[in-house]
């Protein structure tokens, strides 16, 4: 018996070192972020100024709201391709009710966010009831949402927006130099998501369902409910981001800004949340968002740069960052079992 004990304690030591390695891995995106910030602060004088740092936060706020919802979805191992269309649809519904129908706030905003949540829920039901992969159900939902937006707006842009949307998108708290409301909304979204995922039973179910769906079912978790809830949460976040985005632009356009979807998924995955589910979280998403923001903003701050090169450079840096993440996570190393 003593010999087996010796072996198991050895095994245990080995595991402890892998735990240490694992925590080093999760820091890889943080190193990427620090390296980018160091680079841009050396390459550009204006980058580190408080006003510019504040700019970065404003620039990533919409993305952050979407990213909070996307984190739930990716953690369950699903994906939501409909968020960009949700952003558009919410703006149109709000503006249509407010401008064309003359319904006072807060009803247009509540209705718009409600519709986005409902559509997310429907994607979830399609995924769980009819076993349509979320990749397809949310893609179809994306067309439904953008189609509704085009139909309702008849292709026209609304240039008048409600006071609620204006407040969310361009208001400030505490005078003209105060905090931007949209940054606060984004921070709240991330905070609430963080608390839910880290500390609630629901959060645990999200992680466990993503890590091993059949295992979660065998432990009595209603995984269908979890998948559906994650997509509904993402729909809700899409709705909130829609209001914020509309307020920021000062108009509601029927055209879908496709980059929202790619940028959101990109930022969340870049932070280290796995596309396969079960690994990652809001802290990772925050780091991913900051990497994204730093890169976009930093390139704008380098005067000598050919503006037509920016997208190319962004792509190259993203690819590099993903490879580094993967190298550190040991995933590219051949599995030894």
């Amino acid at each position: 018996m003593t010999q087996t004990d010796a072996v198991t304690s050895h095994l245990h030591e080995e595991k402890r070192s892998t735990v240490l390695k694992r925590s080093l891995r999760t820091l890889a995106p943080l190193w990427t972020l620090l390296a980018l910030m160091l680079f841009f602060s050396l390459a550009s004088e204006s980058f580190l100024r408080p006003i510019n740092l504040n700019n970065i936060l404003v620039q990533i706020s919409t993305l952050a709201i979407l990213g909070a919802g996307m984190t739930f979805v990716l953690l369950t191992g699903q994906i939501d391709l409909s968020i960009a269309s949700m952003v558009t649809l919410v703006g149109i519904i709000n503006a249509h009710m407010f401008v064309n129908m003359g319904i006072p706030e807060p009803w247009p905003s509540l209705a718009a966010v409600g519709v986005a949540t409902l559509l997310g829920l429907l994607s979830g039901l399609a995924t769980t009831r009819f076993r349509i992969p979320s990749f397809m159900s949310t893609l179809a939902m994306s067309l439904i949402a953008s189609g509704l937006a085009t139909w309702i707006s008849q292709g026209r842009t609304f240039f008048k927006i409600s006071e609620v949307a204006a407040f969310l998108g361009s208001g400030r708290i505490g005078g003209p130099d105060g905090l931007r409301v949209l940054t606060v909304v984004a921070a709240l979204c991330l905070l609430v998501s963080f608390l839910v995922l880290r500390y609630t039973r629901f959060g645990r179910y999200i992680y466990m369902t993503g890590a091993n769906p059949s295992g979660a079912r065998l432990a009595g978790v209603n995984t269908n409910l979890i998948f559906t809830a994650a997509l509904a949460i993402s729909g809700f976040c899409g709705g909130l981001a829609g209001l914020v985005n509309m307020g920021r632009l000062g108009s509601a356009q029927p055209q879908v800004i496709d980059s929202f979807m790619i940028d959101t998924i990109g930022a969340v995955v870049l932070g280290g949340t796995s596309l396969n589910g079960g690994r990652g979280g809001i802290i990772q998403t925050v780091i991913g968002l900051l990497i994204y923001g730093t890169l976009r903003n930093g390139l704008d701050n380098i005067q000598q740069l050919d503006p037509f090169m920016k997208e190319f450079i962004t792509g190259v840096v993203l690819m590099g960052a993903l490879i580094i993440n993967l190298l550190f996570s040991g995933r590219s190393v051949r599995d030894r079992t």
Binding site: T200, M208, G215, G278
Partner: peptide, 26 residues
């Protein structure tokens, strides 16, 4: 299929009765 290999033992053990053990905030 039934266990969560990367998750801690205690999380594997509490999952079926998490509601009883931890309530809303485990």
């Amino acid at each position: 299929k039934s266990l969560f290999m990367d998750e801690a033992n205690y999380r594997n053990i509490t999952l079926p009765h998490l509601g009883h053990i931890g309530g809303f905030w485990p």
